[in-house]
């Protein structure tokens, strides 16, 4: 924007407007707009193939969008990147990679070390503290392939914490993890929210949405409903997103 007073939207952590993403000629995300207020914790929900992961990856510029604009903290997302952390699906990486748990967490410090910077004792202990926050301090020198799925997810979250980001975006953080890990992750995420940080997570478990998240974005290629969980996570909207399979557990 060239104007002398760009319109700031400080209350919005992430604003997606009219985002369209296509694989080949098939649109997987069709003109989706969504706003994620600062300090909120939003579940992105929808059936398999609804384009949830694609939406978030395109919002971060990891895959190209056809059209649309994405702003984070009022700035184009590329400029706000240092304030954003992204936790991919666990299956996105090769866990046989020769790295220890602490090495992965330290990758979250790259913006502060850069090419040449030394990993100072201060930075090292910071990485350890993030591991400790997720109950993983004892595993610091373990090879990452020797971890369980839940432990791997915790390591990924610790790497995101090490970045000190104000906006944390997670792709299915609870997929294939045990109850203890789920509880550990959710308590850390709620802690982040209490610090005023913003959380966006692709989520699949309809039964825990209300307990975990204060906002919901329901989508199926297009955005279907968006807003506070209590008023948005309703039978009609969920049925529309999931294709009218009757969901009696959800308030009408």
């Amino acid at each position: 924007m060239a104007g002398p007073t760009p319109i700031p939207m400080p209350e919005t952590a992430l604003a997606i407007s009219g985002l369209t993403v296509a694989y080949g000629s098939v649109p997987v995300v069709a003109t989706v707009s969504a706003r994620f207020p600062k300090g909120s914790m939003t579940a992105v929900m929808g059936p398999n193939g609804a384009g949830k992961s694609t939406l978030l990856k395109a919002a971060l510029g990891l895959i190209p969008a056809v059209t649309g604009e994405v702003r984070a903290f009022g700035d184009p997302v590329a400029r706000s990147m240092p304030r954003i952390a992204y936790v991919p699906q666990r299956a996105a990486v090769d866990w046989e990679f020769p790295a220890r748990v602490i090495d992965v967490v330290q990758m979250g410090l790259y913006r502060r070390t850069g090419l040449f910077g030394r990993l100072t004792p201060g930075l090292r202990s910071e990485a350890m503290a993030q591991l400790d926050r997720l109950g993983m301090a004892d595993f610091a020198t373990r090879q990452i392939g020797a971890l369980s799925g839940g432990q791997q997810q915790r390591v990924f979250l610790a790497r995101a914490l090490a970045q000190g980001a104000d906006l944390v975006i997670l792709d299915e953080p609870f997929a294939g993890v045990d109850a203890a890990t789920e509880a550990a992750i959710i308590s850390v995420l709620h802690g982040l929210r209490a610090e005023g940080r913003t959380i966006i997570a692709v989520h699949h478990d309809l039964s825990t949405v209300t307990a975990y998240f204060d906002r919901v974005l329901l989508m199926n290629r297009r955005a279907i409903a968006e807003g506070p969980t209590a008023s948005t996570f309703r039978r009609a909207a969920v049925a529309e997103a999931y294709g009218h399979q009757l969901l009696t557990a959800i308030p009408a």
Binding site: K57, I84, Y86, V93, D94, A99, M107, T113, R159
Partner: peptide, 22 residues
């Protein structure tokens, strides 16, 4: 030696590496 950090990060998780400014 100079590029070892970006090389390792790109090999392990290219998406994350890009978000970290690599």
């Amino acid at each position: 030696l100079l590029l070892r950090r970006p090389l390792i990060m790109t090999a392990f998780d290219p998406g994350h590496a890009r978000l970290m400014g690599v």
